[in-house]
Write a protein that binds this DNA or RNA. Structure first.
Lengths: 264, 264
DNA sequence: CGCGGACATTCACCCATGTTAAGTTGCCGA
DNA sequence: TCGGCAACTTAACATGGGTGAATGTCCGCG
């Protein structure tokens, strides 16, 4: 189960109906590059990506810009937006984007109706931190080729939810300029690297699609190791956390408490 | 209130007694460079730094190493260590280190006795993610001088819990080599930068102490903006989150639920 | 059909940072 | 007191990746 599937995977079928109805009711579109949230603002809504990609980013006073992470369909964007007094980073649409925006009062009602929702969201926040750590080491230690290869691997795996050994393709909505902003490189140099990867027949990027003929080769180039995505863990762990902290529960009556446990 | 003070600040005086007794009972020392946790292992205990510094780090197969963040006295190390199936990063002592290690069963008992503990810990996890984001942009966008200046600013502010305008000094336990691992630079280049900062009378590092004659100057060099540390927010926000998700509570009977809210 | 904008590509140049390899200092333990 | 190690300095040299600017390519729109 990947990041995008966490919520669906942990809900009961009844809860899933409520959840999906709520998403549909609150859908909203953004144009390419539009900001969903800006650094320093007061966060106002819980957001879930329905279609398209969003980018978390931060901008320095002189204009330098770093993409901190991507938010793919099905993922939350972003949990601390709901907890913190002032957001410390911005979020924008990569291209045309469709999100569900759930206001505070609505969210409150939703959480009461879907007790399994909270644990799922907490889990997603923890994974988000793990991914951020991987980005830090990626930018800090890898060279340009490895960085780009790693980014492509992550995007591929996150969309397929399986670190498959063979090849395949997936959506890819970033421009080379955005890849550069994400990896701390220049657009020109990303272009050099992408061409090098192309020459080696490691990847082909075209028409908003990423093709990876041989995933194992690309993963080797990047020293990619998918464990930081913690694929497949959430269901097991929310359960484990519940038992750990609330062993006297039958697991259904007050499962909302499990959320707490899962975050500790 | 800074990261290190979160727990103390949010507990009632009775809870604080229990908490501190528990810490004292479970104290344990590590030698310089010893690992408290290793990537890929199953996490076993909740840890709180009592004295000294710890470093979160990640190592690549070929030996390249990136320090992902520091854990200062009073801080937790690390929350997801308690949630995840396999740790995705390692933790080591920077120098001689004293921590409290609380086993799972003990932790469970502790959380039952101190309902305000959980919200505090959740909050700390969220701040941890924010700090990680700042490190990403630091390494991705800033040049060597700015990076080092930023690191020094963060360490200074985190230890004083106040982004003061004047000057002052604080503990500083990192070697130049460790600073290099943290900022994605080489030890040699960190040395060049430190000397440059010294020449400009921006900092002096000596005897495990960091002296900053003029914090404003250093902050300007680094484009340092302390908001990502969310200083002073936790007490307010745990309260806010509680009211948001559990408006029918009087705020004392089941405050443990506030933890959940604070993480969403 | 042709224009304009967004993106990709290429090139020449050069600088910030890495590399390697000596020193040098200073502390700690025998 | 001395030896030895860890940390810090310094220097000469190498290079990955940045800069700036021009050109190419595609695509949507009037």
């Amino acid at each position: 189960m990947g990041l995008g599937e966490i919520v669906n995977g942990l809900l009961t079928s009844r809860e899933r109906l409520i959840w999906e109805a709520s998403l549909a009711r609150n859908a909203r579109d953004y144009m390419k590059r539009a900001d969903l949230a800006r650094e320093g603002e007061r966060p106002v809504a819980l957001r879930i990506i329905l279609a398209g990609w969003a980018q978390k980013y931060k901008q320095m006073p002189d204009g330098r810009r770093q993409i901190l992470g991507l938010v793919l369909p099905g993922e939350l964007c972003d949990l601390d937006l709901f907890t913190v007094a002032r957001t410390d980073h911005s979020i924008a649409a990569v291209r045309r984007l469709s999100v569900a925006e759930i206001s505070r009062p609505d969210a409150q009602r939703l959480f009461e109706q879907c007790p399994n929702l909270a644990p799922a969201l907490c889990w997603a926040a923890i994974i988000g931190a793990a991914v951020q750590r991987e980005w830090t080491i990626n930018i800090g230690q890898r060279n340009a080729l490895e960085r780009v290869a790693q980014l492509l691997c992550e995007i591929y795996v996150r969309q397929r939810d399986v670190p498959s050994g063979g090849g395949g393709s997936c959506d890819f909505l970033l421009t080379q300029g955005q890849m550069a902003e994400a990896m701390g490189l220049t657009q020109v140099h990303v272009n050099r690297v992408v061409q090098q990867l192309r020459l080696r027949c490691a990847v082909e990027i075209r028409n908003m699609r990423l093709e990876i003929p041989d995933f194992a080769q690309l993963a080797a180039l990047a020293s990619f190791n998918a464990t930081y995505l913690h694929l497949g863990e959430p269901a097991m762990l929310v359960e484990r956390a519940r038992m750990l902290f609330l062993p006297d529960l039958d697991g259904r009556d007050r499962p909302i408490d499990g959320a707490l446990s899962s975050a500790i």
